[in-house]
């Protein structure tokens, strides 16, 4: 009974990790990837704790501590150097931007939303 519950918990954690990896692969911007990476590490910490409860040991406690201490470093480092280039529909997504301009030019605030949708459509 208890073992079945642990298997179910593990399956739910696995589903969450798969969804996070999907967002890391899919993007569309580097910020989305870093947010998903942060969430992946948080899920990993929870899953390691669940594994410790299941197998009744405390050997991975230092791993939890180190992950909790260092998980934010990569995110901070990447966020420091995010530029306009990383925008969905920016220079990297050339096809999406071209399609967007064919539908009619939008300026200012509309352009941001416009680029997001057209970039997604191009993909």
């Amino acid at each position: 009974m208890l073992q079945a519950a642990f298997v179910l918990v593990g399956t739910i954690f696995f589903a969450a990790v798969v969804l996070a990896v999907f967002r890391i692969v899919r993007g569309p911007s580097i910020l989305d990837r870093m947010i998903a990476t942060d969430m992946l590490v948080a899920t990993l910490i929870c899953a390691l704790a669940a594994e410790m409860v299941q197998h009744e040991h405390t050997r991975t406690l230092p791993v939890l501590l180190v992950l909790a201490m260092t998980a934010f470093l990569a995110t901070v480092g990447v966020a420091r150097y995010v530029t306009q280039q990383d925008r969905p529909g920016g220079p990297q997504a050339e096809g999406g931007a071209a399609e967007g301009s064919a539908e009619g030019g939008a300026a200012g605030d509309d352009a941001a939303a416009h680029d997001t949708t057209s970039g997604r459509a191009a993909r």
């Binding site: 208890l2 519950a5 642990f6 918990v9 739910i12 969450a16 798969v18 996070a20």
Partner: peptide
Amino acid sequence: VLFLFAAALLSLAAGIGI
């Protein structure tokens, strides 16, 4: 197990949201 379920469901909610 109940608390682990809560943690797992929160992770799943985050995955779906993300």
